[in-house]
């Protein structure tokens, strides 16, 4: 895997978590700008998904197994969109808190992805 991409995604996820956490702290729902932020982070995870599959296609093997690696790739791509939809249904500070929690989960998944790839 591209280490730079994994690190960039983790940092972006943590930034999104802080931003939405701040919105929750100020008692605000998620706004358009937050959704643009979520889109950017999701885009990074999708790029990662493609890069991951290309590298698997080239015959490179993740240290802890391909199944685990693919599962985590898909999970990390789904985390933010799922949390985003839930914040659309919950137009209060708790919607923002959900996205913040989702972004933290994504950051954890990135660390795991890194481990799974490099052992």
């Amino acid at each position: 895997m591209l280490d730079a991409l994994t690190i960039a995604t983790s940092v972006a996820a943590l930034a999104l978590a802080a931003w939405c956490g701040h919105a929750a702290f100020r008692d605000q729902p998620t706004k358009d700008w937050h959704f643009i932020g979520m889109a950017v982070v999701t885009l990074l995870t999708l790029v990662q998904l493609v890069v991951g599959f290309v590298q698997l296609g080239r015959g490179e093997d993740p240290a802890q197994g391909t199944t685990l690696f693919v599962a985590y790739l898909i999970g990390s791509a789904c985390a933010i969109p799922a949390a985003g939809f839930m914040s659309l249904a919950e137009r209060t500070r708790w919607g923002s808190a959900t996205v913040a929690a989702g972004a933290v989960v994504l950051a954890v998944l990135e660390v795991r992805l890194f481990d799974i790839w490099s052992g």
Partner: peptide, 26 residues
């Protein structure tokens, strides 16, 4: 039960479901 803080709970439980189910199936 999913209004307000309940939404955050559902999200966290959902994450645990996906994590625990996929982990144990695998």
């Amino acid at each position: 039960l999913i209004g307000g803080p309940g939404m955050l709970l559902v999200w966290l439980y959902g994450v645990m479901v996906v994590g625990a189910v996929s982990r144990s199936v695998y």
